[in-house]
Amino acid sequence: MDGHLVEGVARVVATDGDTVWLEPEQGEACEGCLSAAGCGVKSGGSNRRLLARRFSMVNSFDGQVGDRVVFGISERTLLRASALAYALPLILMVGGAMAGKLMTGSDGGSALASVLGLAAGLLFARFRAGRLDAKGELSPHFLRYAYGPGPSEHCDQD
């Protein structure tokens, strides 16, 4: 692993042999965000998005359900993933639109070329992401256990 790590906290929600399934925890600031309901972090909100963001890791740390762990992903991986998912399809879409405009001179030809460019970019991103995934470069890594209560846990002491 190279470069600095972006760290996050997640809770183990299931174990399956050598694999653990985790749900990422949000920081307390997330509760105050206007988009909190959209992310599924708002109290009482739908958990659909959190379920969708579940991820798995190799259980090299003997994790049990309920454990809170700190996971990390390298900054380089994050940048590479962003470029692959967004920048590449976008550049091909804009490039396609410009080429279509220069070749046909019409808005219709330009729009068609931009759609083709976007589709080509997404196909290439799928191919490239598959290769990175096979090498394990897009997977988060276990760093250490997180101690103390999570942001949604309150300690009532009367």
Partner: peptide, 18 residues
């Protein structure tokens, strides 16, 4: 396209709506 990419980057998308 890639579930791994979604896990890595999915957090940013809902924020864009607002």
């Amino acid at each position: 396209v890639s579930p791994s990419l979604f896990q890595t980057l999915g957090i940013y998308l809902p924020l864009i709506t607002t």
